[in-house]
């Protein structure tokens, strides 16, 4: 059942996400600056920040318990595991034998859950406001993600992420199908929310609630939790790209094919971040009670895609 090559690819994907996450975060910051006609920080600024933070002394509030300290690690390990499950470079889920899309959705829930508990644990009012918003958004966005993935899975006959992207890559599920492109649109909105970018930057709204759940983190803890959240953004983007744009991924895991696919995937992610930056910089932040309107629309699109799926049959 174990395929050594696939396992290796899985680990490499995890490393890819780990090492490039601050790059992508920096990229979106640079793009933002450019759109504001500012010079902006260097592309690799986040690496410098993280390394510097790691050397700093950690200050914790007296209220905090072990949960507060463990959360950065929990966020990191669960996103690393998600990275191994997404079919980024090959048309199979590298660790597909240990889990499917439901595991991925609940690993995201795990990140959210522990981030929320740690926000509570810090005892800071700002963290708790951020936590409440993060969780409320989760309630609004998770149904959309589940519905879209469920429809694609029904097309593919399997909830394995690899099988789903393979079906799209091999053209067995046609893009002409309205169910697919509507689902894609709904999923795109959902990923925007999951990445926590404007207009959905509610939980960690820097100007408003002082980065929400991160308020009390400092030093190495802050470095890891920030890094973990950058990684989460990358895996969310990867999930979207891997399922709906799997072209160019290696069908058989060979060295050159995978290398090419990895480079291509990197470029696809850059495209995603550019589009994300355009959206992010052309809108203002939604209020918490304004965001349901958008998420209900996303859910509506997902439901429409579902209706088209039904009509097909």
């Amino acid at each position: 059942m174990f395929d050594a090559k696939l396992l290796l690819i899985g680990f490499l994907q995890a490393l890819f996400v780990l090492l490039l996450a601050p790059f992508f975060a920096g990229l979106s910051r640079v793009l933002r600056a450019k759109m504001h006609s500012r010079k902006g920080p260097p592309l690799f600024q986040y690496y410098y920040d993280i390394i510097k933070l790691m050397k700093r002394q950690e200050v914790r509030p007296a209220q905090a318990t072990w949960v507060f300290r463990a959360t950065p690690y929990i966020i990191m390990v669960s996103t690393l595991l998600i990275a191994t499950l997404i079919p980024m470079w090959v048309l199979q889920s590298p660790f597909g034998i240990i889990g499917d899309m439901i595991l991925v959705i609940y690993l995201f829930a795990m990140v959210r859950f522990f981030l929320a508990v740690s926000g509570f644990d810090s005892g800071s009012g700002f963290a708790q406001i951020g936590v409440a918003r993060e969780l409320a958004l989760g309630i609004l966005v998770e149904p959309t993600i589940m519905l879209v993935l469920f429809i694609v899975a029904l097309f593919a006959g399997s909830t394995n992420l690899g099988a789903m992207s393979e079906m799209i890559a091999l053209g067995k599920i046609s893009y002409a199908t309205p169910a697919i492109w509507l689902g894609m649109a709904a999923f795109a909105v959902a990923t925007f929310i999951e990445t926590g970018k404007l207009p959905f930057d509610l939980a960690e709204a820097e100007q408003e609630v002082q980065e929400g759940p991160l308020t009390e983190y400092s030093g190495p803890g802050l470095a890891l939790v920030k890094w973990g959240l950058f990684m989460k953004q990358v895996v969310v983007a990867s999930l979207f790209v891997a399922i709906f744009f799997p072209f160019g991924s290696a069908v058989v895991p060979g060295f050159l094919g995978v290398l090419g696919a990895a480079v291509l995937f990197f470029l696809k992610l850059i495209c995603y971040y550019v589009i994300l930056a355009v959206v992010e910089n052309s809108v203002a932040r939604l209020t918490l009670f304004g965001s349901p309107r958008i998420t209900w629309v996303a859910l509506g699109i997902a439901l429409l895609s579902f209706v088209f799926y039904l009509v097909q049959i």
């Binding site: 914790r60 509030p61 009390e216 890891l224």
Partner: peptide, 25 residues
């Protein structure tokens, strides 16, 4: 992986300290 990162880049001996209360603006 995160532990390795801490070992590689973490400052030696600065440790951590407790703040009496969370920050309240």
């Amino acid at each position: 992986l995160p532990l390795l990162l801490l070992v590689l880049y973490g400052g030696a001996g600065v440790g951590s300290r407790l703040d009496a209360t969370p920050w309240a603006c």
